[in-house]
Amino acid sequence: MPGTTLGKQKKPFGQWLRTRKVQQWLVIIAFMTIPLILLVTFSYVPFAKMFEFSLYKMKRYDSKNNKFIGLENYLDVFSRDDCFNSLKLAGYYIVASFIQLAMALYFATILCFKVRGGSLFKGLIFFPYLISGIAIGFIFKFFYTRGFVFDTVLSWIGLNPESLPYWLKDTRINNASLAATSVWRYMGQNMVLFLGAMMSVDPTLYEACAIDGANSWAKFRYIMLPSIKSVILLNMILSISGSLSAFEPPYVITGGTFGTSTYFVMMNSLAHEKGKIGLAAAMAVVLMGLIFIVTIAQQVIMKVADEDWREERRNKKLAKARKKAEKEARA
């Protein structure tokens, strides 16, 4: 019995292996394995582990004294006034990131055209991005120290150094001081991304536009901006999720003191100083959820704001209505 079925329906294994369909699958699997293994080991397994941590009351990673407490850590994240409230500080960084994007767009537009010393300026503006965040922290710690760099510069333009605020101590402005350092750091990177997108715009479009009598503003508004729309969206998503997870400036410059403790600084202090790893892991999971929501919301808003998309939708609706009308007419 088994012999007959084998002989009739299946080819020998070697031959079967060499068929086109099997070969195709083999190639697909072979190419997928390595990236999948990497993705699972370095992204999904650690994340699953972190989610597991968030369900425990634990002081250290490998301790046997961890106690399972279910979702209590998540309740804590939302009920404690120092966890979720620290997200408010992200507001400073979000405002700063919009200023940063506007400045980057401005510089990119200028440098996109032939400017004397353009490469030099591009280099200078991009340069801060190459310095490590920790080093930038130390630079600005001295920059903001009373009577040091910033105060001296301001006194050159006639301000009385005695009447200047304490840049890091005064709780009304210290978060703005810190957010400014991240503008300084990331503006150049944003600019380079914009510049790259702008360079790929077909120059003949500008020429045609000029022949039609468009001025520089019109060129920017009707040719450049629509062409780099996707890069602007990308930069915005990166900046906002970056603002939510601001860490280096407050950690290095103020250590999270005087009301500058952002969500990440709080998380670090809970996990590594206060010995509440479970709670910190729960904070991380909540933050990830938030970043998801923000990103999706941004996509949706951009889509709704997009004229092409609205027109497409309008056309579709019209087509539907027409079909319906035709049907009814036929009936």
């Binding site: 002081k59 250590g255 999270g256 003191t257 202090s269 100083e273 206060k274 010995g275 509440k276």
Partner: peptide
């Protein structure tokens, strides 16, 4: 640890 006062453990309470 649980109270997060953190005597001899962290500096945030003194700060």
């Amino acid at each position: 640890t649980d109270s997060e006062v953190g005597l001899n453990m962290d500096n945030t309470h003194v700060q």
